[in-house]
Structure formats: structure tokens, C-alpha cells
Amino acid sequence: MDERPSATADLLSAVFWMFFGGAIVYGAWTMDRLEYMNINPYTVPGLVPGILGVCIAFMGALLLIRAVRAGAPKLGDIVAERPGRRVEIVRVLVAAGLCLVYAAGFVGHGLPFWLVTAGFVTAFIFVFQFPARRADDTLLRGLFVALLCGAATAAAVTLVFQEIFLVRLP
């Protein structure tokens, strides 16, 4: 961790845990108790999740109290921005987006794995090196490096996993 989260962030996560715990308790309470099977009442399937839900909601409440005592909610926590924060958010969203599109959108949906992998690695490297390459005026070289890495990764992964270790690829 670079920095400790603010009291407001703790407050929001506390509210989430309280809702989450409550939802688990509700789900556990309304779960089938299998009375028609004449099971021992101490083995009902909802017992343990219900207890866990209560514990999670209780700890969420403790976190909420702690966050409020620490001054949450503070408008400053929401409005104040550390320099570079926006760049970090954009980088995370781009990385997560590329990974999700590759793994959830393309892998296992008909296209050959090596092709999808080569495309993903190329796109990832090119996108993240784009600002530096543009500043250095080496965009074409950057694209070539990205393509080379993409092709090499696809070939190596297919060879090692599929051909040598006989692992089925998606």
C-alpha cells in the first residue's frame, strides 16, 4: 500500500460490509431447511453462512463507528486529489479493460488462442508504451517491438503448455 485509505473510504467499505452481511443473513434465513428430509436441525445448510453474515455485518458496523470517529464523511476526502491520481486511475482502467476484453471477451469464443494472445500482448505493450514512444518519435519501432513480443509470447506459450506439457489451452 502506498498510502492508508481515508476515513471516508473506510466508511463506504463499512456500509458495503453491512449490506453484504445483511444480504448473507437474509439468504441464509430464507434458505431451504430441508425439513421434508427429516435432517438434524443443527445441520441446516443456512446455519454457517448465517453466522458468518452476522459476524461480517457486526464487524462492518465496528468499522463504520471507527470511520465516523475518525471524522468521516469528509468532503475533503472526496474532493481533494493527490497529484498523479487521475493518471493512475486511467492506467488501471486501461489495463483492466484490456485484460477483461482478452480473457472474458475473446478467449474461448472460437478464435485460436495463439492469435488472441498475440493480439492482446501486442495491444497491451503498444498502448502502455504509446506516450513515451510518441514523445521519442519512435511509434513505428514501438509497434514492431510490440508485435514481436506478441508473436513470441503466443509461440512460446503454445509450445511450452500445449506441445511440451500437454496442457489444453482455451
Partner: peptide
């Protein structure tokens, strides 16, 4: 790391899929 990280993610994808396919 711009080169290492996408390769790590490809390995994550294979690692999760390969055991139960």
C-alpha cells in the same frame, strides 16, 4: 514491466483454465 505484465496476465488466464478446463 509494460512487456512483462501482459505475459503475466496470459499465464494467469492459462493457469486458471488448465486445471478443470
Amino acid at each position: 514491466r509494460d512487456i512483462i505484465m501482459p505475459i503475466v496476465f496470459v499465464l494467469c488466464t492459462i493457469g486458471s483454465f488448465a486445471i478443470a478446463q
